[in-house]
């Protein structure tokens, strides 16, 4: 529990920091003179930039918590790689998707969600394969050393 709290705190700090940097970059990229915490259309829903930024910081913190607490899954090295990957995918997908929609990062339509889900699955398939490859090589080199000993 203590570990989760520390991890959550790190998530809040990191989430806010990354959110701030990204929103600054995108504000400049859009050629705006004023700061927008998210897309101009999303920001316009609020009475002013102050409350829009406030809500954004809150959402960024929650996104940070999802990923930093989710990362604890990767310390469960007694789980199979498949279980570890699937649990992490579930936590980050169902944690991140609603928050990304809430923060106005992409419009709520089927095409976008399918694209987002596809990207997620591809990334996790790559993560699974890399972890399997690393473990396989580790096992191979251990077996080689075992043979050399006997």
């Amino acid at each position: 529990m203590k570990r989760i709290s520390i991890q959550a705190l790190i998530g809040i700090i990191l989430g806010t920091f990354i959110g701030l940097i990204l929103s600054l970059v995108f504000s400049y990229l859009n050629g705006a003179k004023n700061y927008y915490p998210s897309s101009p259309a999303w920001t316009a829903q609020f009475s002013g930039t102050l409350s829009a930024t406030c809500i954004s910081v809150f959402i960024w913190s929650l996104i940070g918590i999802v990923f930093s607490v989710g990362a604890l899954v990767f310390t469960r090295t007694d789980w199979s790689i498949a279980k570890m990957t699937i649990v992490h995918l579930t936590i980050s997908y169902f944690g991140f998707l609603p928050l990304a929609i809430l923060s106005g990062w992409f419009p709520l339509n089927i095409g976008q969600i399918i694209g987002f889900t596809g990207t997620f699955l591809v990334v996790y398939a790559i993560v699974f394969s890399i972890n399997m490859l690393i473990a396989k090589n580790e096992v191979k080199s251990i077996n080689r050393k075992l043979k050399n000993q006997s």
Partner: peptide, 15 residues
């Protein structure tokens, strides 16, 4: 370790 024959990894990634 003196009694170990070999290590293996299964399809789901368990050693």
């Amino acid at each position: 370790l003196n009694f170990v024959k070999e290590f293996q990894i299964n399809k789901t990634g368990i050693i």
